[in-house]
Design a binder for these strands. Structure first.
Lengths: 194, 194
DNA sequence: AAAGAACGTAGACAAATATCTATGGAAGGG
DNA sequence: CCCTTCCATAGATATTTGTCTACGTTCTTT
């Protein structure tokens, strides 16, 4: 199971890991299985782990005053699940993270992550790349959210993330885009005509 | 002028810099003055510099098919201006960054930044903190954009960033929030009644 | 196989927001 | 100082999106 992670690191950084480095990484990451709907993180708790998704799909969401869920992030294989805000600031999380499909994870504590970053250059490089990618994705999504109509946002999303459209139902996608499932349904209908 | 930057680094990281380290940083960062409306980065160019704002205010925005500007980011003193996506991926930027007020910057190339990160631990730490903060801010804003009404979004923004509300006109703030200036004007009027 | 939940779609209506035009005042450049 | 540009607001109207209810289908669970 750890092989997926080691491959991920070497591929992303175009480097190799020594046996010692591999051992350190394997020691730090613990396998964990989550059944569908099981929580990885619950609102109000401090996020102590980061999870590398080996197989499965997860979602991160907040719940507003009216009890409505707002999807802030979706994760599938080779994504890192965690609430960075909570993990970095050590504050109670405003979000829930749970499994949408049965999911296999490799989890490590924030402390272990910092340790690995310090000891293994390519691990540090990998996390930097991961951070950059997250930020860029977030910026793009934000730009799309403030600039585009619901229709354009969905088109962009479907073009860039076809895997997500396949694996999550429409009401989840709609929430992720900041629209209702009804609007998404209408938008898709419009799109078919073209 | 470099003192602002050195202070910023030591404060953020709770550490001190040796004379050699300070010299490296000063050598890497070049002072630059921008007049109001002058570009720091223009759409289509690759972002080669990152700028630390010593004094002034800047904005980052895209321009859509209809020629409408969409503000994706605002910067004031002690913020770092750059298009990370372009700088990291070495792709032409989709954004413009220009000075909203006359601005004093300290600029460094991406290569110099990487060099400083490698040579100066606390510089690496500082950039990591900066990246984390950016990401968290971006996540929050995204969450707000998809979850809240225009009114709530403005309230949150005004509460969290009173300096921005003071220094940028309403149509800029409105664009930043993803609404029109007309809507923002109405929202503010409503808020006064409370 | 049956029962219940989850899901997508639809239509009618309501609410939020955008668009457009106009106006007066403030700010900035010569 | 005058002139121009920028800025905030207002009202009328159009468009987009949300809300609610309903229904048929598919998926889960027992």
């Amino acid at each position: 199971m750890h092989k997926n992670l080691l491959d991920y690191i070497t591929k992303r950084t175009n480097s190799t890991l020594t046996n010692d480095e591999e051992a350190l990484i394997i020691a730090a990451f613990q396998p964990k299985k989550l059944r569908k709907k099981q929580y990885f993180l619950q609102e109000g708790n401090v996020c102590k782990y980061v999870g590398f998704i080996v197989k499965g799909a997860m979602r991160q969401y907040s719940i507003d005053d009216k009890g409505v869920e707002h999807i802030v992030q979706l994760f599938i294989e080779n994504w890192w699940a965690s609430d960075r805000e909570s993990a970095v600031m050590l504050t109670p999380s405003k979000y829930n993270i749970d499994a949408w499909e049965d999911t296999d994870l490799l989890i490590a504590t924030t402390a272990d992550m910092l340790d690995l970053m310090a000891k293994i250059p390519s691990f540090g490089q990998m996390t930097r790349l991961m951070d950059e990618r997250s930020f860029i994705a977030s910026q793009r999504r934000l730009n799309s959210a403030i600039s585009n109509t619901a229709e354009k946002r969905y088109q962009e999303f479907a073009d860039n993330h076809p895997q997500f459209v396949q694996r999550f139902p429409q009401h989840i996608i709609a929430s992720y885009l900041g629209i209702t499932k009804d609007t998404l349904s209408r938008v898709r209908k419009q799109a078919l005509k073209k």
